[in-house]
Amino acid sequence: MQSRRKKKSFDDDINPDSWLATYADTITLLLTFFILLYSISSVDSEKLKQLTKSLQNSLSPTGSVEVAEIENITDLKVQGGNTEYENLSEKLNKIINDNALTDVIKIREEDRGIVLQLDETILFDPGKAKLKEDTQGVLEAITTIINGTENDVLIEGNTDNVPMKTAQYGSNWELSTARAVSVVRYFVESKSVDPRRFAVKGYGEYKPLVANDTPENRAINRRVDILIVEQKVKKDTKDAKEIKETKEIK
């Protein structure tokens, strides 16, 4: 008799709704996953509405699960970056290739934008800030690139770490800045590009690409970088619009 009572007591302790805890945890994890996915991506608003509706139905008291008709992850139209800016990179490469300037202009992408890197020897004589006469072909191509965009442009002068001390330039600061100004003046005065699009910086030896420990490395660091600035304002406006759409869904 005592054994039967114990068994009955054990059976009474079983909660028939205990599966709901596991179910709720699973739904919470799914919700967290999609929120994270949205936070790092640009999501098509219509697909997001479908997804939100599906999650709301899943969390309904009836416990029924309705899945929106999303065949695969690409239907969410997740865009891992600024498509217009990626197209700009392709456009710049095409212009450089078409003008046979791949050995003269190097392209690198940074968070700030796309950088056209020009070696010192292409533009200037050692220790000088006056543009060489034979730089016209290179700067013509870059003018085409600049005129083909609406982006702001930052011209950055850079040197190696060899001290500069002449009557004209007291340090690498002055030399790097003067070189950047010479390039800007070419675009503005010779090519009539809108001066409001430009800014100038002279970094001296303090923004090297590689260590200044060999003559070859120092030659790499002596350069002018032309930065096609990523249009943050336009991107931020787009992000704000998407956030607004998300709030409206809620």
Score class of each variant (00 low, 15 high):
residue 125 D to N: 15
residue 70 I to G: 09
residue 233 V to E: 14
residue 12 D to Q: 14
residue 145 I to T: 06
residue 121 T to S: 14
residue 221 N to F: 04
residue 220 I to H: 06
residue 72 N to R: 10
residue 205 E to V: 00
residue 142 I to H: 01
residue 66 E to M: 09
residue 39 S to V: 01
residue 242 E to L: 12
residue 123 L to M: 02
residue 107 I to C: 11
residue 229 V to C: 05
residue 80 G to W: 06
residue 160 D to N: 15
residue 118 L to I: 04
residue 47 K to I: 11
residue 202 G to A: 04
residue 65 V to P: 05
residue 233 V to P: 00
residue 108 R to C: 05
residue 175 L to D: 02
residue 134 D to L: 06
residue 168 Q to T: 15
residue 238 K to W: 09
residue 56 Q to S: 12
residue 222 R to C: 05
residue 224 V to S: 03
residue 188 V to C: 01
residue 242 E to K: 14
residue 93 N to K: 08
residue 218 R to L: 12
residue 138 V to N: 03
residue 89 S to L: 15
residue 143 T to K: 00
residue 229 V to Q: 12
residue 21 A to G: 07
residue 4 R to Q: 11
residue 178 A to S: 14
residue 58 S to F: 10
residue 193 V to K: 10
residue 77 K to Q: 12
residue 107 I to P: 01
residue 195 P to G: 03
residue 243 I to V: 13
residue 111 D to A: 11
residue 3 S to M: 11
residue 10 F to C: 07
residue 143 T to D: 13
residue 154 L to N: 10
residue 214 T to K: 04
residue 102 T to G: 03
residue 29 L to G: 07
residue 99 N to V: 00
residue 159 T to F: 04
residue 109 E to Y: 11
residue 190 S to W: 03
residue 61 P to H: 00
residue 11 D to W: 11
residue 137 G to Y: 13
residue 16 P to Q: 07
residue 2 Q to P: 06
residue 59 L to E: 06
residue 152 D to A: 03
residue 109 E to A: 12
residue 33 F to H: 09
residue 63 G to T: 02
residue 73 I to P: 08
residue 137 G to M: 09
residue 116 L to G: 03
residue 68 A to K: 07
residue 19 W to S: 07
residue 105 I to A: 02
residue 89 S to V: 13
residue 219 A to F: 03
residue 32 T to N: 07
residue 47 K to N: 14
residue 121 T to L: 04
residue 44 D to S: 05
residue 24 A to S: 10
residue 97 N to G: 09
residue 16 P to C: 04
residue 248 E to R: 14
residue 2 Q to G: 05
residue 215 P to R: 08
residue 119 D to K: 09
residue 141 A to R: 01
residue 134 D to V: 03
residue 82 N to M: 00
residue 120 E to T: 01
residue 31 L to M: 05
residue 184 V to E: 15
residue 89 S to P: 01
residue 72 N to L: 03
residue 225 D to I: 00
residue 117 Q to L: 06
residue 41 S to I: 05
residue 119 D to I: 00
residue 199 A to C: 00
residue 182 S to I: 10
residue 100 A to Q: 14
residue 52 T to W: 15
